[in-house]
Design a protein around this nucleic acid. Structure first.
Length: 426
RNA sequence: GCGAGCGUCGCCAAGCGGUUAAGGCAGCGGCUUGUGGUGCCGCCAUACGGGGGUUCGAUUCCCCUCGCUCGCCCCA
């Protein structure tokens, strides 16, 4: 038989890696708990229209990166490419917004049909925060602070927070018109990609990586100049709040987010150690989205962290999280002994111990070899004699304590005692 | 969607036109038929991603294809 492989861009997370992921998820959960943010879980599959309306028809994500198909009921369905649209949809659908501001987080897989490369997969994982129904500038800073502190606690160094203001929809419309006419006037000096974007998504020309274009852009009208006075004031408040919190940031007037729903504050947290995909966390304010998806006018701000990229950074810092070693490794030989060993194993587990049982039935020598490799401090040995007597031998694998023979319940209690002595906080 | 590099055992990796296709790690078995961590011995790719071609002969050269990796685009 020909063997099968996972689909392109779909990655298996092997047992060696899962402890690190669990650590990361647990840390994130704890930060959300302390920030009084509740978890929301929404389906992976949504109506295609949700993303078309929410993210924007003209964006790359919607235009060419979605996993869409028609189901048996002739509905166009899409595997979610991001989390915000679903969360907003759920909040509207269940009337959450009439119950006051919603502080929500989510996590899980997202799907985008792209060419895989460093820090980019077709199925990838995000955790994200959405604050719905909060309009004040300090909430923007609060959202950023939660992300910043989480990344800091995980031990990710060398991060940079970049912020910008995209202003109101009117600001952007006005600026867009200015920029387009300027770009058209300089059409011949632009790189081909940027020339195309004049008609598709002119704001994105601003963060072109083409050096010639970047140099040229120095003379282009800036978004900051196009902002109305109120937008300016609002952005000043956000910066002031960040300063008050002691969170360092750099202004990046060229920072333009690729999803249509962003306005006012936009930010990214980047690392120079990630290769081409430098953004670990991206987010901003999206005051118009709820209404656009059929809900009441609702101000909102949020972000998402890419877990694969985070893991990349953590692994560079050698932040290795070891899997758990068992407290007790159970060895047996013979049918009656195996049964007794299983009983001991279960009693140990019921008492809260981590117990691994060797089911090979092989030579004791081999079983001890595996016991040693498991890292367990104790081994319990049951052969025919012990099985007949209803006892087990307890062997100290790390220390020098002599081997003892005792009834299984006492053995479990003894191992528990020894662990308590080793780490009193248990 | 475009560009570049790479594909030899579960992992790392030599071989670069004729080899029994090295070696290391892991795994399995034994020395040690009931006691580990060391050591020693044995086993572990008719097979070099797949398909064509060139050649007396191809893992080694050429073409196609698939996959991986990195970059562009885009984004977390």
């Amino acid at each position: 038989m020909e063997s099968l492989q996972s689909l392109r861009g779909m990655v298996d997370l092997l047992p060696e890696r899962t402890p690190l992921w669990q650590h990361l998820e647990a840390t994130a959960r704890e930060h959300f708990r302390r920030a009084a943010i509740a978890e929301i879980r929404t389906p992976l599959l949504e109506a295609t229209e949700l993303f078309a309306r929410g993210i924007g028809e003209a964006t790359d994500v919607v235009g060419k990166e979605m996993y869409s198909f028609t189901d048996r009921g002739e509905r166009s369905c899409t595997l979610r490419p991001e989390g915000t649209a679903s969360v907003v949809r759920a909040a509207i659908q269940h009337g959450l917004l009439s119950q006051g501001p919603q502080r929500l987080w989510y996590g899980g897989p997202m799907f985008r049909y792209e060419r895989p490369q460093a820090g980019r997969q077709r199925q990838f994982h995000q955790i994200g925060l959405e604050l719905l129904g909060v309009a004040d500038a300090t909430s923007d800073a609060e959202a950023i602070a939660i992300a910043w502190d989480l990344l800091a606690e995980l031990g990710v160094g060398g991060l940079e927070l970049e912020i910008n203001s995209l202003g109101t929809p009117e600001d952007r419309l006005r600026y867009r018109a200015e920029l387009v006419s300027w770009l058209e006037a300089h059409h011949d000096q632009l790189d081909p990609d940027s020339q195309n974007r004049i008609s598709t998504n002119p704001l994105r020309v601003l963060d072109s990586k083409n050096p010639g274009t970047q140099a040229l852009l120095a003379g282009a009208p800036t978004l900051a100049d196009a902002l109305a006075g109120e937008s300016h004031e609002r952005f000043a408040w956000v910066r002031q709040a960040l300063e008050a919190l002691g969170i360092p940031f750099v202004l990046n007037p060229r920072l333009v987010r690729g999803l249509d729903y962003y306005g006012h504050t936009a930010f990214e947290i980047t690392s120079n150690q990630l290769g081409a995909q430098a953004t670990v966390c991206g987010g901003g304010r999206y005051d118009g989205l709820v209404e656009q998806l059929g809900g009441p006018p609702t101000a909102a701000v949020g972000w998402a962290i890419g877990l694969e990229r985070l893991v990349l950074l953590l692994r560079q810092g050698e932040a290795v999280v070891a899997g758990p070693a068992p407290d007790l490794y159970v060895i047996s030989r013979g049918e009656a002994a195996a049964c007794q060993a299983l009983l001991l194993t279960r009693q140990g587990r019921q008492a809260g111990l981590v117990v691994e049982r060797d089911a090979s039935g092989g030579a004791f020598g081999k079983q001890f070899k595996r016991a040693d490799r498991s890292g367990a401090p104790w081994a319990a040995v049951i052969g025919d004699d012990e099985a007949a007597a209803g006892v087990a031998k307890l062997k100290d694998l790390h220390g020098e304590q002599p081997e003892r023979q005792l009834p299984v319940l006492q053995l479990v209690a003894l191992v528990k005692e020894s662990l308590k002595a080793a780490s009193p906080q248990l």
